[in-house]
């Protein structure tokens, strides 16, 4: 196999591998743009995964499964929203609690699904015309529906962020909630919606793992993807387009993790790859000064209250 063919095959596999990351990242980017960090991504994803698998087994309907996963992710996110927006609890603490809650409940709910063969599976849907293109066709246009939807969400979110009043409101709430409030924007409503949307997306990301990518239920199957999403959000500089690049980049790393084993590199070492990359991203961007330079929303992690005196 030529080196080009090898790279091509890695990239082709990287897109499905990066898709759960893409959903999670787009959701977290939206939530953080409103000023709320949600470290519960890992928990919302794993709950999405177990819900999707369970609903798929019960109904045999993949779309119902995905919708249920999204809803569960969204509801979990609302717990975080209530704690961090209404009660103004520290966002890190509340998010971590959410992750632990999700891991615990999913483990309990998923016991009976362990080892079950999947009843439904999303099949690849080649897009007529486009899928026959040389190189690009097999790379981009011979995947399942969720890959396409994820890809499509990127320009849609970009447009919403930068070209609509909603986007201006969302970004203003994350940059300067007092300003937005003074201009009649409902800060609490915007933040709730953004966090809820983040939950929906994380839920779908989880569903993709259990009914498309694996497809099976394995306890703890998100295996740190939710944490990578947190790093990716920074890597993406809170921008959907860069989020897409980051998700597929980390997707490639996940693919290489398996492919390179063939070359005799130790598997545990390879398993560390995505996390080494995550740590590097966080190290590079951890400082307050660096965050400002990267363009972090100025009011990130700051609860908002009105009449302060």
């Amino acid at each position: 196999m030529s080196i080009w063919a090898y790279i091509f095959s890695v990239l082709q596999a990287a897109i499905p591998a990066g898709t759960p990351l893409l959903y999670g990242t787009l959701g977290e980017v939206t939530a953080e743009r409103s000023g709320v960090v949600n470290l519960g991504v890992e928990g919302m994803m794993i709950m999405g995964a177990v819900t999707a698998f369970g609903v798929a087994q019960a109904t045999g309907n993949a779309f119902l499964a995905i919708a249920a996963a999204a809803l569960v992710g969204g509801l979990l996110a609302l717990i975080h929203a209530f704690a961090s927006i209404t009660l103004r609890v520290n966002q890190v603490v509340s998010g971590l609690a959410l992750t632990m809650l999700g891991q615990g409940i999913s483990g309990m709910m998923g016991k009976r699904f362990i080892g079950m063969p999947p009843r439904v599976q999303l099949k690849p849907v080649p897009i007529p015309g486009l899928s026959d293109l040389p190189v690009l066709g097999p790379l981009l246009f011979q995947h399942d529906l969720l890959v396409y939807i994820g890809l499509l969400m990127v320009p849609v979110l970009w447009f919403l962020f930068y070209r609509t009043r909603w986007g201006i409101n969302l970004r203003s709430v994350g940059e300067s909630p007092a300003t937005a409030d003074a201009m009649g924007v409902n800060v609490f409503q915007v933040r709730y919606l953004a966090v809820f949307f983040g939950g929906l997306m994380a839920g779908i990301g989880g569903a993709y793992l259990s009914i498309v990518y694996a497809p099976a239920w394995i306890e703890g199957m998100t295996a740190g993807i939710g944490w990578i999403v947190i790093a990716l959000t920074i890597f993406a500089m809170w921008d959907p387009v860069r989020g897409l690049l980051g998700a597929y980049l980390f997707g490639s790393v996940r693919v290489l993790q398996y492919r390179l084993q063939g070359l005799g590199i130790s598997p545990p070492l390879l398993n560390m790859l995505p996390f080494i990359l995550t740590i590097l991203v966080l190290m590079f961007s951890a400082g307050e000064a660096m965050r400002k330079r990267l363009g972090a929303p100025a009011a990130l992690m700051q609860p908002y209250t009105r009449e302060e005196r």
Partner: peptide
């Protein structure tokens, strides 16, 4: 006009001016 300006520093003048206005979905 408050003593401490209520502006979003990283946004454009036009974005700041239309912030919070009701009306169309798109940026006017």
């Amino acid at each position: 006009v408050h003593q401490q300006f209520r502006l979003v520093p990283s946004h454009t003048v036009a974005e700041n001016v239309v912030l919070g206005l009701p009306g169309n979905f798109f940026f006017p």
